[in-house]
Structure formats: C-alpha cells, structure tokens
Simulated assay, not measured.
Amino acid sequence: MPAPAPGAADPLSLHGVVPPTVTAFDADGELDAETTAAHARFVVDRGVHGVFPLGTNGEFALLGPEERDEVVRVVVDEVGEEVPVIAGVGEPATRRTVERAEAAEAAGADGVVVVTPYYYPLDGDAAVEHYRTVCAAVDCPVYVYHIPSKTGNDLSLGTLDELAAIDNLAGLKDSSKDVPWLGQAVAAHDELTFLAGSDSLLKPGLDLGCTGMVSAVANAFPELVVELYEAYDAGDRERAAELQERVYEVRSAIKRGPYMAGVKEALSIRGFDAGPLRSPLRRMDAEEGEALRADLEELGLVE
C-alpha cells in the first residue's frame, strides 16, 4: 500500500518530504539571499518533493518584511520550476499576514503557510476569522501551521471543522506532537492535506494519514528522509520504521546545544555554510560542534 494521497482540496497535492529550508546570514547577521537560495537547491537536488521557506527553521520571526519577501523571491527563482514552494507568511496581526501572503503570491510562491497568530491568546472564532481573511486575499492555496508550543494558541477539533469549510484552505502542517488530535483531525477531514511537522512523527504521521513531512533533519540530511518516505510509499513499512529510528538518532544529535543550532552546524559539517543564526539565537560553540561531528560520524552520515 502506498503512502496516503493528498486531500482533494489541495491543488498542489503536497506529499513527501518538504523541508523548512534555512535562511542564511553573513558574518554581520545580514540576509545572505544567494546562500539561502543555494540551500533550497541543496535539498531539491537530493530528492525532496517541495520546499517551505520561512518556517521555524527559516527564522521567520527574526526577519523584517522586506527580508521575508526577498527570501521567497530567491527560493522561487531557484527551485520554483521544479517543486512546489510553500512560503511561510504568518504574523501576529491579520493585516500583516495578508501583506506577506500577497507578496509571496506575487513572487510566485505556489502556496502560503500561515502560522496560528502568536503572543495574544485567540479563541476559535478569532482564529477562523483570521484564516478566512487570509484565504480571501490570495488565490493560491493556504495551509495552516499548527504549532501551539511556540504560538501559545492551539486549535480545537471543532475550530478545525470551521477552518476546513473555508474556500482556499488546502491543508494543515501539524507540529503539536499531539497524536490523538492529529489522528482525529485526519480522520475527520480527508479532503485536506496533512503534513507531519516533527521529525519524531515522520512514519507515525504517515500511518495516521499525513501525506508528507516537514522535516528539520531533511534540511541537513534530505537523502535520509527521502529514503524513509520512498520506502513507505513502496510498501516497505519495515524499512521505513528502521529509517525512522535512524532519524530519531540524528534528531537527538542535532538538538544538542543551543535551540535550533544543530541544523546549520550539521550543514557546515557537510560543507554547506549557511552562516550564523540571527541574534538572539546563536550557533554552537567549538566544543558543541565537535560533539555533533562525532555523533554524525558514528552514525555514518559524515566522514
């Protein structure tokens, strides 16, 4: 049996491995657009099925509006002819989210990903009105990004029922790690495309009916995650389970040290320098980096 099929409401038919690509910076912390595009090329050349610039790994919340628009432009220019580009456009304010969504669509993004508004608490009615407004502002498909641990706002299954009825809402990336919620959401809305948003739930997400995965590990080791998806899609569940165990090991290794520093460090170890994280985030220090290198060497991922 192949991997689950995308929902009928999703014109992009998103599936497979869709990394939340990194945003590169130079030594002064300025946006390095050329290297940002090169990272999208790096993962596409290694078999991924789409790219998601300006997700959490893309440090979107630390970028200004012009920088965010530039990231979308350069990624679309680099790989937009080959795979779907779904651009993160979420902001705390609906008005600002609409501005970024319109700019992303104008730049050629195939779809936009809208994180649940953050900082201020939202009830279900406010969340529905937010997404309804964004969906009405663009013609490209809109995907909900559900990550309550970072936004402080989760979506009830009842609210999801209302969201699913909005024209132009095509799917949901779930990073809640709430397996019962995700299982019930998928079962209730097979018209939507669901993407598993945690490396801890790649194969389990497929088992629940997700059509693909937004994998941070795939930013540094896309081949590994693509192999997992392809094994699953070919019906080899045993091999997919083995590869999920390997992803767990890689995930544990890259989560050492400062928050989110592991992906760029692993890329550097592979020979791809995406520069620093933007302050106040920071890269690993030398000791942490050497420990990660040792872990990756032991896993046979680098020499």
Rank of each mutant, 00 (worst) to 15 (best):
P53M: 07
M284H: 12
L155P: 03
Y232K: 07
F52I: 09
E191P: 07
P121V: 11
E102S: 11
L296G: 02
Y143M: 13
V114H: 04
D10T: 00
V128H: 12
M284G: 05
A231Y: 01
A9H: 09
L228N: 06
E66N: 13
V74M: 11
A170D: 00
G7V: 02
G16E: 03
A220E: 10
P180W: 00
V89M: 00
D295L: 10
V134P: 02
R73P: 06
R68V: 07
G171M: 00
E99F: 05
E249L: 14
P2V: 09
T133G: 03
P148A: 06
K177S: 13
K173E: 03
G289L: 07
D139K: 11
L243Q: 03
D190A: 08
P204L: 02
A231L: 05
Y119G: 05
A40E: 01
E297K: 10
A185W: 04
E265V: 10
W181Q: 07
F272D: 07
L296P: 01
E265S: 15
A33V: 04
N219P: 10
S268G: 14
A40L: 00
P180I: 04
V75D: 02
F60T: 12
P4W: 02
A266H: 03
R283M: 14
V263T: 14
D77H: 06
V22G: 02
H49N: 12
F272W: 12
D273Q: 03
L182V: 10
G55I: 00
R239P: 01
A5M: 10
M1R: 14
E191R: 11
Y119A: 10
G124K: 08
M260G: 02
S176R: 10
D233R: 08
A234P: 03
L54V: 03
H49V: 00
F194N: 00
F52W: 14
P20V: 08
A126Y: 06
L201H: 14
S149A: 15
R41S: 11
P19F: 05
L277T: 06
S215K: 08
D190Q: 08
H189C: 04
T35P: 00
V128W: 10
G205P: 03
L172K: 11
F60N: 12
G80Q: 04
A109Q: 03
E67P: 08
T133S: 11
A253M: 02
E91N: 14
A87D: 06
D295T: 10
A107D: 06
E105N: 07
A231D: 05
Y131A: 09
P117I: 12
A101D: 04
I86Q: 00
F25E: 06
A103Q: 01
F221M: 08
H49L: 02
P2K: 11
R132K: 14
D295H: 12
Y232P: 07
P11Q: 02
E290D: 15
V186Y: 03
T211V: 07
V72T: 15
